[in-house]
């Protein structure tokens, strides 16, 4: 590879990751002003044992484990890639996917939709690790 291609590839990669980060910021902003979200609240929510949902899934950690940098596992035995952005840069880059899983997982764990604030807190927490 010549130096110019190396530079080109490097520049493209940097651009791509900047674009991805921008996507993620946009997804979080869609739930409200990012300054109002708290990683600490997100962590507490993520690790709490909730009631009101389905008995099989009392907590987000049931599947994602309490260590978001580690691999999780579904109840059907399938591995789930890490949730922490630092361990899995592809996290939270597709708004439809994020919404789909909040809808499902919040209903399973809490028996209701998550609020925009809860969603923003969780994403802030998982992006901050």
């Amino acid at each position: 590879m010549t130096r110019s291609t190396l530079i080109l590839v490097g520049a493209l990669a940097a651009l791509a990751s900047a674009a991805v980060a921008a996507d993620r910021r946009a997804i979080i902003s869609a739930y409200g002003d990012p300054a109002g979200f708290s990683a600490a609240r997100g962590k507490a929510f993520f690790e709490a044992r909730h009631t009101g949902g389905k008995p099989e899934t009392p907590s987000c950690t049931t599947c994602h484990t309490a260590n978001p940098r580690a691999e999780g596992r579904t109840r059907a035995g399938k591995p789930i890639a890490p949730m922490a952005v630092s361990a899995n840069p592809e996290r939270f880059t597709d708004p439809a996917k994020v919404e789909k899983w909040f809808r499902r997982n919040c209903n399973s764990v809490l028996g209701r939709e998550c609020t925009a604030k809860e969603k923003g807190d969780v994403l802030t927490y998982l992006s901050s690790l």
């Binding site: 008995p55 499902r104 997982n105 209903n107």
Partner: peptide, 8 residues
Amino acid sequence: FGEDASLD
């Protein structure tokens, strides 16, 4: 089976 797997 104890989870929400809903789709649009």
